[in-house]
Amino acid sequence: MNRLVTVAEMTLRELLRRRGVLLLLLLMPLTFYLIRRDAYLGQSVRSLLLGVGWAVSTAALFATTAARELEPRLRLAGYRPHHLYLGRMLGLWTVGLVISVPFFLLPMLDGADLRYGGLAAALLCSVGVAAPFGMLIGALLPRELEGTLLLLTVVTVQMLINPAGSGAKLTPFWSSREIATWSVDHTDGGYLARGVLHGIAVTALLALGVASVATVRLRRRRHLRHLPVG
């Protein structure tokens, strides 16, 4: 448990020291919100949620890429793969939750008539999905540029795809969109239930993906035999 917490803490420390990154993390969802503010409020809130998801995914991608060379030596220093990826995920979720707070308050200050419980749930889903999503891309694509471009593609698809179509359910942030609809348009509870279920399932699947890649990459190689000190 101590190892897990230490990795989470160091992830948090690293991100908090990147002031430029933090500023951009806050700026991105804010821009998304404001750019749609003059139109229908639902679009504005959905864009805000997508902005939060995109920002946290990008942070996760860069944190994963940056740790690529450090992790093998931490493995040798006694860490198990799950300490490393779960600790990092924990740190990223914490950062995501912290940056979500102002964006929870923003529509409130803007006087929007929302179900705020729904907004909180949608933000949780956005952050929950974004951390393992960015980590998985970072684990699969070792170069930041490729990772960023893939992330951009996925988020653009998410933004442009018809939400009512069946393909939309395959996009990672569909859950927060559904919950946002329940929150903004005061629709029936089916939206909330579908969204929450989708969010949990996608988060679990992505976390499983991260776990699989990390376990393979940081595995004990078969050619290396460890003996106790004689």
């Binding site: 690293e14 030596r73 040798l76 035999r225 460890h226």
Partner: peptide, 23 residues
């Protein structure tokens, strides 16, 4: 091909990298 046998704890120092920039 080939195999490596190590007795005890292993330490490794890479040629470069292996540290965290912001720590």
């Amino acid at each position: 091909s080939g195999e490596v046998t190590v007795s005890g704890q292993l330490g490794y120092c890479p040629q470069s990298g292996g540290t965290a920039d912001f720590l």
